[in-house]
């Protein structure tokens, strides 16, 4: 965190985070709301952020990390500008979501939860999103794509890449 320009400047995100910690500090069960807000500020929860949370709330880093890795909504990695979620719920899964998921990871050369080097795409598996009638389904940010086959994937990725070029 911080810049390398040599000036004395304060990391705006760090300041926001300490405000959040200050707000919850003396309430019981503060950890999860603090982590939620921290993730809103940073987009994800790297070591430096978890360390600050642990120190601020006077709990161990081990406990913070345990909670972060228990709940799927917390992320250890930055998300892409286009966050792709593949529904692996029962209906989607039996309709071939596993293949869709593998195809996405192969097409973008990613592991689950990772982000492409250009910061554009991240891929992750998710639970049922309630669109079983459209199975198998993926979401790219708020856009829903349903009744997919493996062959549709390259086209969807291209669609967002083209958007960037525009």
């Amino acid at each position: 965190m911080g810049c390398n320009c040599g000036c004395v400047c304060v990391d705006a995100n760090a300041e926001k985070l300490s405000e959040v910690i200050e707000k919850y500090k003396n309430t019981e069960g503060a950890l999860i709301p603090v982590l939620h807000e921290a993730q809103e500020i940073y987009g994800y929860l790297p070591l430096s952020v978890q360390k600050a949370v642990a120190e601020g709330l006077d709990i161990s880093l081990a406990e913070v990390y345990g909670v972060v890795t228990f709940y799927t909504q917390f992320s250890l990695n930055p998300k892409g500008k286009y966050k792709i979620q593949v529904c692996l719920g029962t209906a989607c899964y039996v309709k071939g979501a596993g293949d869709i998921y593998d195809k996405l990871k192969a097409a973008l050369n990613l592991n689950d939860g990772d982000c492409t080097e250009d910061g554009l795409f991240s891929v992750e598996a998710c639970r049922c999103i309630g669109a079983c009638g459209l199975a198998p389904v993926i979401m790219v940010n708020d856009d829903v794509f349903g009744r997919l086959t493996v062959d549709d994937i390259d086209g969807i990725i291209k669609q967002y890449k083209d958007k960037e070029i525009e």
Partner: peptide
């Protein structure tokens, strides 16, 4: 480690089949 020694260097991480007792990260 946590309750008796107050060190808390290890915890239960992850969930389900991936659950592991380890140090953070």
């Amino acid at each position: 480690c946590k309750n008796i020694q107050g060190v808390a260097a290890i915890e239960t991480m992850e969930r389900g089949f991936k659950t592991i007792v380890s140090s953070p990260f």
